[in-house]
Simulated scan of single mutants.
Amino acid sequence: MPVGGRGLDRSGRASSGGWAPTVTPSSPPPPSTARWWVADGRRPTVDQALARLGFLRDHGPSPQAFSLLRRFTVDGRRAR
């Protein structure tokens, strides 16, 4: 079975594989990507990226970490 694929359980019903979180209409999926401004010549580490993603998931979009849908300018103002 491919990674992340769906198979059939013993009763012949489709199984989810158990890897996907449960998402309901009232609970959108958590962000999987975070964006933020980085100074010229700097390259963020994986640990920094994971920290920003955690911040975005815990606090929502802000100048500290934002999403593609809710962006901020380099000076911290909400982008239109």
Rank of each mutant, 00 (worst) to 15 (best):
R77N: 08
P21Q: 03
D75L: 02
R43G: 08
S27Q: 14
R35M: 13
S26R: 14
P61K: 00
R70M: 12
R6M: 14
R35W: 04
V46E: 14
G7C: 08
M1F: 12
D40A: 15
V46T: 09
A49E: 03
F72W: 03
Q48S: 11
V23K: 13
R80K: 13
A65Y: 00
D40C: 08
P25Y: 00
R80N: 13
G5L: 02
G41N: 02
A79W: 10
S67G: 00
L50P: 02
Q48I: 07
D75N: 11
R6C: 12
R71S: 00
L69Y: 09
R77Q: 13
M1N: 06
S11R: 15
R35E: 08
R13A: 13
V74N: 04
D40R: 08
F72V: 02
F55A: 15
R10S: 15
R71Q: 11
A14S: 11
R71P: 01
P2L: 07
S62G: 05
P31A: 09
R80T: 09
T45G: 10
G12P: 04
S67V: 01
F55G: 06
M1T: 09
S62D: 09
G76C: 02
M1I: 09
A20V: 11
T73Y: 00
R43C: 12
V46H: 06
L69R: 15
V46G: 07
V38E: 11
G5W: 12
R52S: 10
P61C: 03
S67I: 02
G17Q: 05
D40G: 08
W37Y: 07
S11E: 15
G4K: 02
S67E: 00
P44C: 04
S62K: 00
D9W: 06
A20M: 14
G4Q: 04
L69W: 10
L68I: 06
